[in-house]
């Protein structure tokens, strides 16, 4: 049994403009010692699906799932109190904006120590010792000095290291990193990613890495699932996904990578945006932006089998060619 199993997770927000389904029947599995990457543009429901797992969504959200099991325990049937015992101890999460994710009014030492006290009941001296150890682990120099500092005295990269130290305080079995490097300088991004991967290996954790950057996926993940407008559109191992993407959206994301874009001479972005509340089309949600879209796509869409990476597409790609597409020759000429 895998560490985390989620089946058909849906999240619906009650908004002033009616119901909005931010996550639509997403399934995922992540085991110990494994890195799963969730990739997709902003607004794809990546954060919301993980916040649903953590129980951190506002009350306007309705969360449903067929299965949500962590370490063999059913999360859906847990009371809030039971879930709080797991959250922060066995499942930890770090966020996109490290600077604003730390509380400006408390010292680094207090914020790390708090987790140790609440979950492990450590005393003062023990907490201090463990906090220093954690800061060393995440590569912060002069950790004793950092303990008494406030977040505004830290740089973005340093703040994210502190966040990671805090998340690792109780040796979690699963770490969720929600775009951990997006807000950081390019030079720092690689360092933080390396740190995360190193710690994941060392602690034999499961790591769910959320990103909108295929470049990050290439360097870190073992398995990827691509999410679009709240739906999982494809799922493959990294190598296979890069070699042979089955969903047109994945293909578009890959060709938006800087190194590939220059090779094909295409613009490094997909025209259009992820449809939000109110502008979701019928049928395939990607159809307004898909170059293979047909009338059928605008009415309905079908989930493929494992041979196509469970692609949510009527004409899954095979080596770049849409299988069963009626107008392939015309597309060939468009290339």
């Amino acid at each position: 049994m895998a560490l985390l199993e989620i089946e058909n997770l849906s999240v619906t927000f009650a908004t002033s403009g009616g119901e909005f389904r931010a996550v639509d029947e997403v399934s995922l599995v992540c085991d110990r010692g494994e890195i799963l990457s969730i990739v997709g543009e902003s607004g794809s429901g990546k954060s919301v699906s993980m916040l649903a797992l953590m129980g951190l969504l506002p009350w306007t959200a309705t969360v449903t799932a067929d299965t949500m099991r962590f370490d063999g325990r059913d999360i859906l049937s847990m009371s809030d109190r039971q879930r709080r015992e797991i959250i922060g101890r066995d499942i930890a999460m770090i966020f996109q904006e490290p600077m604003s994710s730390l509380n400006p009014c408390f010292t680094v030492g207090f914020q790390i120590g708090e987790t140790l006290r609440v979950h492990l009941g450590m005393g003062r001296a023990e907490r201090r010792e463990r906090s220093i150890e954690l800061l060393k682990l995440v590569g912060i120099p002069a950790p004793e000095k950092r303990l008494s500092q406030f977040p505004h005295q830290l740089s973005g990269g340093m703040s994210q290291r502190v966040m990671i130290a805090m998340a690792l305080a109780c040796n979690p079995k699963l770490l969720i990193a929600d775009e951990p490097t997006t807000a950081l300088d390019v030079t720092i991004q690689a360092q933080i990613l390396d740190l995360l991967i190193g710690l994941q290996k060392k602690n034999d954790m499961g790591l769910i890495l959320i990103t909108h950057d295929m470049g990050v996926v290439a360097e870190t993940a073992e398995r990827v699932q691509v999410q679009y407008a709240g739906q999982k559109v494809e799922e493959q191992r990294v190598r296979e996904l890069f070699d042979d993407p089955h969903h047109p959206y994945t293909q578009a994301l890959l060709s938006a990578l800087p190194e590939r874009a220059t090779r094909h001479g295409r613009l490094p972005s997909i025209p259009g945006v992820v449809p939000g509340q109110g502008d979701r089309p019928a049928g395939c949600l990607f159809s307004p932006r898909c170059r293979f879209a047909t009338d059928l796509c605008r009415q309905t869409v079908e989930r493929q089998g494992p041979e196509f990476g469970y692609a949510l597409c009527n004409y899954p790609l095979k080596e770049g060619v849409p299988t069963g597409h009626p107008g392939v020759p015309e597309l060939e000429s468009a290339r």
């Binding site: 709080r84 959250i87 922060g88 604003s100 994710s101 730390l102 509380n103 708090e114 609440v118 805090m166």
Partner: peptide, 21 residues
């Protein structure tokens, strides 16, 4: 604020999240 979400993600009781953080 983000840090309130962080506090909740640590598994702190709502009383502590609201009354302290």
């Amino acid at each position: 604020e983000d840090y309130v979400r962080t506090a909740r993600s640590k598994g702190l009781a709502p009383r502590r999240v609201i009354g302290l953080h």
